[in-house]
């Protein structure tokens, strides 16, 4: 699994390096450029947050592409490893990239805190944090973001395994339909049985307007049946993806 990940990273090294540089440049431009043209602090914070979200999406795309390339590639599929390793490597890949993204965001936040920008933001109402979990806030955010990423990725991996098993055209459209269907079913089930509480729901960030952002946490809870439900669903996704890789995915 780790060796597969090593070759994933080697294959994607230039893209990853490029992505990292692009992220840093974007953040720097927002911070420095924003101040230059007198955007208010709230606006800068919202823009930065949107940048992180955007790179979060890129991260998911990168992981999916890597997974898709691996399960189709003759060279990779000839190695004596069970199909679970391909899923495992992709999950580790996602975990690693989100950890890096979180680390950069964490440093960013530390800078905000030490320079007093954070307090200014809270006072002006630009950022509202509603956190009512028993966990300390920073730790809670890390766990919630990492788990919800993993949960989302297991679903995406299953969808990739499905589309790579199909032989006809329009596979990506079908993939999209499955994503929408699965996420609605899951959120319906969560609402119906657990009152919508679970970890896999990203903390509700709401961007009210250009200068207001609220973080709702009441739906994020690490304890409770919602989390168990998500674990079971993720395990099912992984199991199904493994079976498909074993039996159906077409190797080049």
């Amino acid at each position: 699994m780790l060796t597969l990940l090593k070759y994933d990273l080697k294959r994607d090294q230039f893209m990853l390096l490029g992505g990292m540089i692009a992220l840093l440049l974007a953040l720097l431009t927002i911070e420095l450029g924003g101040r230059q043209i007198n955007i208010e602090t709230n606006g800068i914070a919202v823009l930065s947050f949107m940048t992180y979200s955007f790179f979060g999406i890129l991260l998911l795309i990168a992981v999916c592409n890597s997974f898709r390339a691996s399960i189709r590639s003759v060279g990779r599929r000839l190695v004596p490893l069970g199909s679970i390793h391909y899923v495992g490597a992709a999950l580790l890949y996602a975990l690693l990239l989100s950890a890096v993204l979180l680390a950069i965001a964490g440093l960013h936040l530390l800078y905000y805190k030490s320079s007093g920008i954070l307090r200014e933001l809270e006072q002006s109402g630009g950022v509202t944090v509603n956190w009512n979990s028993s966990l300390p806030l920073p730790f809670g955010i890390v766990v919630v973001v990492l788990w919800s990423t993993l949960f989302l990725v297991t679903m995406l991996l299953l969808v990739m395994a499905v589309t790579e098993s199909l032989k006809f055209k329009g596979r990506s459209l079908i993939g999209l339909v499955i994503v929408v269907l699965l996420s609605s079913v899951i959120s319906w089930a969560k609402n119906a049985f657990f009152g919508g509480v679970g970890v896999g729901t990203l903390p509700g960030f709401h961007i009210e307007n250009q200068s207001q952002m609220t973080m709702q946490s009441q739906y994020s809870s690490i304890d409770g049946f919602g989390f168990v439900f998500e674990l079971v669903v993720a395990a099912l996704f992984i199991w199904a993806a493994v079976k498909l890789i074993d039996r159906k995915v077409r190797i080049e």
């Binding site: 060796t3 090593k6 070759y7 080697k10 294959r11 590639s73 003759v74 060279g75 000839l78 190695v79 004596p80 490893l81 080049e252």
Partner: peptide, 26 residues
């Protein structure tokens, strides 16, 4: 040990890296 009729090494690899891949997995 299977030699397929199309490249089994990946596009980004050098000859050495393709061999290292074999070494790491087999």
């Amino acid at each position: 040990s299977f030699m397929p009729d199309r490249p089994q090494f990946e596009r980004w690899m050098t000859v050495g890296e393709a061999l290292d891949f074999q070494r790491d997995f087999f």
